[in-house]
Nucleic acid binder design. Structure first.
Lengths: 213, 213
DNA sequence: CATTGTGAACTCATTCACAGCG
DNA sequence: CGCTGTGAATGAGTTCACAATG
C-alpha cells in the first residue's frame, strides 16, 4: 500500500470516471467487476485502472476483480466526495442560473448555499431554489456565516479577478472558475478552470488536422 | 519549420491561452512580446512557449521577441479559428439557454445557427437570439440545411448518447459534450467533453490533500 | 547582445509483463 | 486458474542550456 508517491492529475480525473461507471454497474446489478471490464467501459488500458487504484491501496480480489460497491466507497473517500460540500456562486447571469439549477451537483453532494451578484436589480430576488441573491459586497461575511468551502465564479470576464479576490480574502480554499479569465491566486487557494472556448479551439484544431490528413 | 512531429494536446490548450493573452497585450498597446513575458502571463515556462510555437514555424525575431499582431494571426490559423464555425445545440434547458446567450462564443466566431429539443412545449418557441427551437427529429435534415460544423450537447445524461447518435448520423464532424455521459463515437467524429463534476472531484481531492499535508 | 529555436537531458505518465495470491 | 498488484520498460511532455541570429 504505497502512499505519498506522486499521483498524476490524470489519475484523479480517471478515478472520477471510474466512480461514475461503478454507479452504472451497480445499477445494472453487478457485484464485482474486473479491471479489464471497467477499463473497457472507461476507454482506458486495464493496467491503467489497476495502477491508478494501486496508488491508494489494494482494493481488489485476485482471481475475481473489484467489489463494485466497496470500490465506490473507496473512491468516494479518495476524492473526498463522501461528504457534503458547500458552495457559493458569484455572477447570477444565464450561466450562473443554469449552474444553480443543475441537478448533477446536488446529486453528488455539492450544494449551493449562497448566490452573489453586483446588480442592484438582482440583489434580493429569490431564486427557484429558495436562495436569495445577496450583494457581493457581503461575500466575505457570508462565506463565514454559511461555511462556504468552494467558490464558483460565473461572472463575465471583466469581473472575474475582482470576484476571485473577494473569495481569496474570505479564505475560501477552492474556486471553480467558469469565466475565461486566468485568475492570479494566492498559494492557499486551489483553482480549477472550466473554459468553454479553449475546448472549442481544441475541437477546431483537431477538425482542421484530422480531416485534412 | 518542423511539420508532422507529434504535437501534445497540452500545446493546443496553451496556444488558445497565448492567443487570449496576445489580445490583451495588443489592447494594452504592446507591439512585440518576448517568450519570457508571455510565459509569465500564462503561468508557464518560457521554453515551453518557444517549443509550442516551434512545432508550427518560426514566428519570432531573435533579440526582440514576437510581433503581437502577427502571432495572433498565426495562432488563429493554427487553431483554425480564422473563420466562422456553425454550431447546432441540442437540449435547450437552463444550460443550453445559457450557452446560446454566451457572448464569448459569438465574439470568437462560434455561431449557433440551430437549436433542438424533444419537448413539444419548447418546439416552435423563439429564443431571444431569434432562433426558433426545432424538433430534434428534424436534426439530420437541418444539419445539412444549416451547414452545421459542430454539435453541442446540453441534454441531461439520459438523452445524451441518443442525441449524439443523431449528430453522428448527420455526419457532424465534431461534438462539444456538456453532459456527464461518456459518448461512444464513430471514428469520423471528434469529441470534447466539458464535465463539471469531474472538475469538482479534482477540486475536492486537492482540498483534502493540499490541506491535510 | 537579447532573445529565439532546438537537440539533449530530464521528469512524468502509460503500458507491459509477470510474480503473487485468493 | 484468473485477475490483481507492481517493478521494469517504454513513451510522452517539459525544461535546460546553448548555438544561431536579427
Amino acid at each position: 500500500m504505497e502512499r505519498r508517491e506522486k499521483i498524476p492529475k490524470a489519475t484523479i480525473t480517471r478515478l472520477s470516471l471510474y466512480y461514475r461507471h461503478l454507479e452504472l454497474l451497480e445499477f445494472d446489478g453487478y457485484r464485482t467487476v474486473a479491471s479489464e471490464k471497467l477499463a473497457w467501459l472507461c476507454q482506458v488500458n486495464p493496467a491503467q485502472v489497476r495502477k491508478d487504484l494501486g496508488y491508494f491501496g489494494e482494493f481488489g480480489i485476485r482471481g475475481v476483480g473489484y467489489d463494485v460497491r466497496e470500490l465506490q466507497r473507496e473512491i468516494k473517500k479518495i476524492l473526498a466526495v463522501n461528504r457534503e460540500w458547500r458552495m457559493g456562486i458569484a455572477g447570477i447571469g444565464n450561466l450562473g442560473t443554469a449552474l444553480l439549477k443543475n441537478q448533477n451537483f446536488k446529486a453528488r453532494g455539492f450544494r449551493f448555499v449562497a448566490a452573489f451578484d453586483t446588480d442592484p436589480e438582482k440583489i434580493g430576488n429569490q431564486l427557484s431554489s429558495g436562495l436569495v441573491i445577496r450583494d457581493i459586497r457581503d461575500l466575505k461575511e457570508l462565506v463565514k456565516q454559511y461555511r462556504i468551502d468552494i467558490g464558483v465564479i460565473s461572472t463575465p470576464y471583466s469581473g472575474a479577478q475582482e470576484t476571485a479576490n473577494m473569495f481569496f480574502d474570505a479564505k475560501v480554499a477552492a474556486i471553480l472558475n467558469f469565466s475565461p479569465a486566468q485568475l492570479q491566486a494566492p498559494d492557499h487557494c486551489i483553482i480549477e478552470n472550466i473554459d468553454f472556448t479553449v475546448k472549442l479551439d481544441i475541437l477546431t484544431y483537431k477538425l482542421k488536422n484530422e480531416i485534412a490528413i
